[in-house]
Design a protein around this nucleic acid. Sequence first.
DNA 1: CATGAATGAGGTTTCATTCAT
DNA 2: AATGAATGAAACCTCATTCAT
Lengths: 194, 194, 194, 194
Amino acid sequence: MSKKIIRRESIIQAAIEVFSKKDFKSASISEIAEKAGVADGTIYQYFRNKEDLFFSIPIEKTNEFRSQLELHLEGISGALNKIRKFVWYFLYFFKTNPGYGRILMLEMRVSRSFVKTETYGFLKQSVGQVLDVIIEGQKEGVIRRDTDIYILRHLVLGTLEHMVSRWLLKGGKYDLLERHQEVSRIIIDGLKAA
Amino acid sequence: MSKKIIRRESIIQAAIEVFSKKDFKSASISEIAEKAGVADGTIYQYFRNKEDLFFSIPIEKTNEFRSQLELHLEGISGALNKIRKFVWYFLYFFKTNPGYGRILMLEMRVSRSFVKTETYGFLKQSVGQVLDVIIEGQKEGVIRRDTDIYILRHLVLGTLEHMVSRWLLKGGKYDLLERHQEVSRIIIDGLKAA
Amino acid sequence: MSKKIIRRESIIQAAIEVFSKKDFKSASISEIAEKAGVADGTIYQYFRNKEDLFFSIPIEKTNEFRSQLELHLEGISGALNKIRKFVWYFLYFFKTNPGYGRILMLEMRVSRSFVKTETYGFLKQSVGQVLDVIIEGQKEGVIRRDTDIYILRHLVLGTLEHMVSRWLLKGGKYDLLERHQEVSRIIIDGLKAA
Amino acid sequence: MSKKIIRRESIIQAAIEVFSKKDFKSASISEIAEKAGVADGTIYQYFRNKEDLFFSIPIEKTNEFRSQLELHLEGISGALNKIRKFVWYFLYFFKTNPGYGRILMLEMRVSRSFVKTETYGFLKQSVGQVLDVIIEGQKEGVIRRDTDIYILRHLVLGTLEHMVSRWLLKGGKYDLLERHQEVSRIIIDGLKAA
DNA sequence: CATGAATGAGGTTTCATTCAT
DNA sequence: AATGAATGAAACCTCATTCAT
C-alpha cells in the first residue's frame, strides 16, 4: 500500500525536476519515467494524463508550504509580525525550492487552463492566509482600513512574486533572502494605518 | 517600399490576435497567415521563424507604451506625482490593450528564452523609467534611501503586474482602473521617506 | 471443479456482451474481466490470449444452435419442409441472440484468422446440415440436380446471412421473423427441381 | 491541378493495397505513405485522417463499378436478362478487384461506423440498381409480385456477396466466374413469377 | 516577392500480457 | 488458483519550415 504512495511520490519528484527545466509541451513523459525509474506506461497507472501529473505537483508542495508556514507563524503575535515572518518564509521557501518555483511561478500561475483546476482553488485558499492576517491587522488597528483588502494583498503577493520570478529568470544567481528585512519594511509601510 | 512595412505590420497585428488567445506552442503560423491574409511562406520573408515573430510583438507595443507615457508625464513635477501618473497609465494601458497584456504578462515575461532576447533588454529599459523616477524622488528627499532601489522597483512593478495578471486571468471582468488611487496611495506609502 | 466451469462460462458471457458492442481491437480484456467479476490476470488462466477467448465464443453458441435446431427439425419429413423450418429457425435464433449475431456475422465470419481456427471448422460443420438436407432433397427428387450443391448452399445461407447482417447493422429495429414465409418461398423456388 | 488529383489517386491505390492485406487498425499510415511514395504528413493534406482515407476508397471504386455496369447493361432488354448480366458483372468485378473486394466485403460492409458514412449511402444507391431491375421485372410480369422487393434483393445480393466473401476468405483459389450461369439460374428461379 | 505543397520528426497514450505475491 | 501492478511497443497526427514555381 505504501509502495504505491512511494512510487507516486517518486514520479512527482521526477516530474518536478523535468518540468522545472522544460515547459509543459517540451517536457516528455519518457524523460519523467526514466528519471522516476519506471516504465512510461506506469505513469498512467498513477495519473490520468500528462496534465493531471503536471497539476498534481502543486498539491503536495502547497501542503508543505502551508504546514511549514503554520509552524513558523506559531507563537508570533501581532499582524505585522506575522507579515514579516510571511515575507521571510515566502522567500525562504522558493530559495529552497527553486525547481518548484519555476513550475509554479513561470508556468502554472500564468496558464489559462490552470485557473480552471481544483488545484488552483486549493492554492488560492492557501495564499488566502495573507488575507486573514490583513483582516487581523485591521482589527488590531495596525493595518489601514481605507484600502480594499484585495488591493493590499496585491501589494504583498505582487512584490514577493515579482522578486521570486525575476530571481528565477536570472537563474537564481544572487541570494533571494538577503534583503528580506528591507522588503518587509516597505511592504508594511504600504499596509500600515496612518 | 511602404507596402512591405504595411504587410509586416498586418502580420504582427494578426500575431497579436492569435497569440493572445493561444499560447506560443498552440498558436499556428497558418492561423496567423490566414488572419493576415498572406500565405504561410510569406511570413518567413518578414521573420526568421515563429519565435522571431513572437518576440517582435513587444517592440512596437513598447514604443507605444513609452511614447504615450512620456506625453502623460509631461508637465508633471514631483517624483511622487509621477509615480501616481505611472500607476494610472500602467493600468490604463493594459485595460485598453488586454490582448497584448495576455501575451506580455502571461507568456513572454515568464519565458526563459525571452530573457535572452534583445527585446527583453528593450522592454527592461522601458520600465527602467520607474527607476529614474525613484532616484529622482530620493534626490528630492521624498523617497526613502534606506532601501535598495531595485527592491523599491519590485514593489511598484510587482504590485501592478500582479493586478494586471490576475485581472487577465479572471477574463478582464471588472474595471482595472477603478481603484488606481488606492493603489497609488499604498505604493507611495511603501516608497516614502519616513 | 465445476467452479472452474462456471467461472469460464461467466467470462465467455462477459466477452459476448463486450465484443457485441465493440470490435475485436476496441474491446478490452479489462472490461471483460470487470464484467465477469475477475481480475485481468485470471482470464489468462482460462484462455491463452484475447483471440483464444474471442474464438471460444462460437463453440458454445454453435452447440446451442445445433441442438435446438435438431429438436425443431425432429418429426419433420421432406427436405423442403426442413428447409422451411431451417429458415425460420435461423432467423429466430439471431432475433433472440442479437449480441452473438453481431459477433458472428459482423466480426468473426469476416475475419481472416478465423478461417484458420478449429472453431471455424466446427461452425462449418454445423451449417453443413444444410448441405445434408439439400442432398436429401435431391434424392427425394424435389431439389434440382442441375446445380452444384455448394452454389445452392450459397443461395440459402447467403440470403439468410444478408438479412441478418443488414438487420443488425440497422440496429435491429424491425422484426426479423416477420417475412420468414416469403423468404422460404423464394429460396425454395430457387432450389426446386423443375 | 491534375498533379493533386494524380497524387490523391496514388495514395488511394496504395491504401487499397495495404488495407486489403491488413484490417483498419493494423494497417499503418506509414506503410501507405511509403507505398504511395510520399511522406506521412502528405497524406494529411489529402485526407482528414486515417478513417477519411479508408472511407474514400469505395467512392472511386463504386463509380467504376457503376459506370462499367451501365455499359454492360446497355442494349440488354428484359429484366431477367439484366439480372443475368448483373450476376456475371458482379462476380467479374470482384474477380478482377479482389483487393478492393476484401476491403469492401470483409471490412467495410460490416463496420458499424461505415453505416453512418456518406459513402455508405452512395454505395447503397449504387446497388439500388438491383431494385430498379426487380421493379422493372414485376412490371414486365416476369418477376413475382407476391414477395417484398427488399426480400428479393436479399436473395440476389445475399447469394452473390456470400459467394464473393467465401471466395475471398479461401484466398481466391478457384475461379469465381466459373459457375455464374448456374447462379443466375437459381436466383432467377427464386425471383420468377409463377 | 509571394505562394502553398511537401516534408518528417516527435510524443502521448493504450492495452495485452506477464509474474511476483 | 487468483491477483493486479508493471511493462513497453507501437502509431497517428501536427505543424514549423523549405523551396520550386
